[in-house]
C-alpha cells in the first residue's frame, strides 16, 4: 500500500500495480469501508483501477494524521464479508447507425460482424471504475481479439447510450460528448438520470453482461425509459 499526495487536499492510496480484478476488488472494498467510517472532512472517495483518491478538507485534516488513519484502515478484507457487486444485463442494439464501427472492428479482428457481437456479449465484464462523464463505466477486460485502438481523431459528438471499445476496455457513453472509442452498438437504458432515485445505474465493482437485441425491443425500451420507467433489473443473486 502506497500513499501519494495530490496537492494540498487529496491523497491517492495505491493498492496494486496493474489492472487486475483482485486488486480492483480490494480497491472497491477499501473505498466502501472508508465511506462507511463517515469521517468529517472527507469530501469524496474515488475508487479507480488500482487506487483510491481521497479528497479531504485541509482545514480539518493535516496530511500526517490522515495518512496514519488511512494506513490503519486495513485494506485486507475477508473475502466472505466482501459486498457483492450487482450483476446487470444491458441490452444493446449492435451495428448499423447505432454501432457505426462494427464493420471496422470485424475487419480488425478478422471476424464476421455477427461473430464480433457474439464475442463482445459473451464476456462478464467488471465495472473497474466510473469517470470521464457522469456514469461512464470502464468495463474490462475486453477479449484480446477486439482490442482495437482508439480512433485517430475523436468524433465531435457520440450519442448517449453508445457502447464503445478501446484497447482492452469497453464502455458506455451516458451523455452526448466527443469521444474516440470505436462504437459497436447502443443501449436504450440511461446510465445517468438527473432526476430520480437512482441517478447512476452502475457502481464500481458491479458486473455487466451485454445482451444483443433487435430494433423493436430497442424502440420499446427507449419509449419506456423516456417515460421514466425503472431500469431492467436482474433478480438479485450472488456473482
Amino acid at each position: 500500500m502506497h500513499l501519494i499526495p495530490l496537492g494540498d487536499s487529496a491523497v491517492t492510496v495505491e493498492l496494486g500495480e496493474a489492472v487486475d480484478p483482485d486488486v480492483n476488488a480490494r480497491v472497491v472494498a477499501y473505498a466502501n469501508r472508508l465511506i462507511e467510517q463517515g469521517w468529517n472532512g472527507i469530501v469524496d472517495v474515488v475508487p479507480t483501477y488500482r487506487s483510491i483518491t481521497v479528497h479531504y478538507d485541509p482545514i480539518q485534516w493535516d496530511l500526517t494524521t490522515l495518512t496514519d488513519r488511512l494506513l490503519a484502515l486495513s485494506c485486507s478484507y475477508p473475502r466472505e464479508a466482501e459486498p457483492q457487486g450487482t450483476l446487470h444485463e444491458i441490452p444493446i442494439l449492435y451495428g448499423g447507425d447505432h454501432g457505426p464501427d462494427l464493420e471496422a472492428i470485424a475487419a480488425f479482428a478478422g471476424l464476421e460482424p455477427s461473430e464480433v457481437v457474439t464475442l463482445h456479449s459473451s464476456v462478464c465484464y467488471r465495472v473497474y471504475m466510473l469517470g470521464f462523464t457522469p456514469g461512464f463505466p470502464y468495463l474490462g477486460l475486453l477479449p484480446e481479439k477486439l482490442a482495437m485502438p482508439r480512433l485517430p481523431t475523436p468524433r465531435p459528438r457520440v450519442p448517449p447510450g453508445s457502447v464503445g471499445l478501446a484497447d482492452r476496455q469497453t464502455g458506455i457513453y451516458p451523455i452526448a460528448t466527443p469521444g474516440g472509442w470505436r462504437l459497436i452498438g447502443q443501449t436504450p437504458i440511461p446510465l445517468y438520470r438527473r432526476s430520480g432515485l437512482d441517478p447512476f445505474w452502475l457502481k464500481p465493482g458491479d458486473l455487466v453482461r451485454f445482451r444483443s437485441i433487435e430494433r423493436d425491443e430497442f424502440e420499446r425500451l427507449s419509449c419506456e425509459m423516456a417515460h421514466d420507467h425503472d431500469r431492467p433489473q436482474l433478480r438479485p443473486r450472488r456473482v
Partner: peptide, 11 residues
Amino acid sequence: RYGYQRYGMPV
C-alpha cells in the same frame, strides 16, 4: 457538488 465523484460526477 461533492460525494458523487466516484460515479464520475464532476464537482
